[in-house]
Design a binder for these strands. Sequence first.
DNA 1: TTAGAATGATACGGCTCCGTAACGACTGAC
DNA 2: GTCAGTCGTTACGGAGCCGTATCATTCTAA
Lengths: 119, 119
Amino acid sequence: MAVELNTAEALKLWHDTHLELVRDTEPDLSARQVTILLTVYLEPPPHTVRGLATKLGVTKPVITRALDSMGRLNLVNRKRDPSDRRNVLVQRTVKGSLFVERLADTVCQRAANLRAVIA
Amino acid sequence: MAVELNTAEALKLWHDTHLELVRDTEPDLSARQVTILLTVYLEPPPHTVRGLATKLGVTKPVITRALDSMGRLNLVNRKRDPSDRRNVLVQRTVKGSLFVERLADTVCQRAANLRAVIA
DNA sequence: TTAGAATGATACGGCTCCGTAACGACTGAC
DNA sequence: GTCAGTCGTTACGGAGCCGTATCATTCTAA
């Protein structure tokens, strides 16, 4: 459970994980898209466009467009809030869950390799 | 020195760091650009366009364009190899060093916060 | 010296994303 | 019933990156 990274380790982890993601043929998500996706999957619902925009410090169209593209990839889903039909609730999907899980695996693996190299 | 991340910690670290980067007004680098930048700053020179392209598994124009844009930001520098003038050597810059250092700080800080939350 | 290989840069059309400004749908208070 | 306020979306022009194909320069070997 101990999480301690010195400067060199942090950079190597960041580099190695990004390299892995770039090499994969997966669809490359932008930093904003990653942040939105992980927010939806890590924090408790509900997630609205406005809420996400405020949290990320960006404008609403940025969120709408990110949801468009990630929705096209089936990573997230949109649904109108029945209790207030102005709101849109961002929901998780099976494919999104798998994607996030894979991302976690990659980071964990690179962190483990990090220690292996040092040892 | 211990680096052990479970799934939830890895995702939280990835999310929190990306959130911090998105919130910053900094120029957002793509995953490819990050990988190139960190490769140049972490691995021993020389770094050529072809070498970077092979390492990342992308085509040469991708590297050229990334160097164009990061050069515009003064994060890296290009120099002809005097011993073989076909080659271009990618060099570090002061501003790039500061940028990388800042990135490391962000990752380290988020990793530390990670433990603080768990404790 | 010259033909071939190798390097990085460029041209092109296409796609995605950006920020600002508008828009229609919906709610709630009067 | 109406109207101001809120929600998410769309429109628009502009900028950046993509992949493929091609280019000029440089080196190497016959």
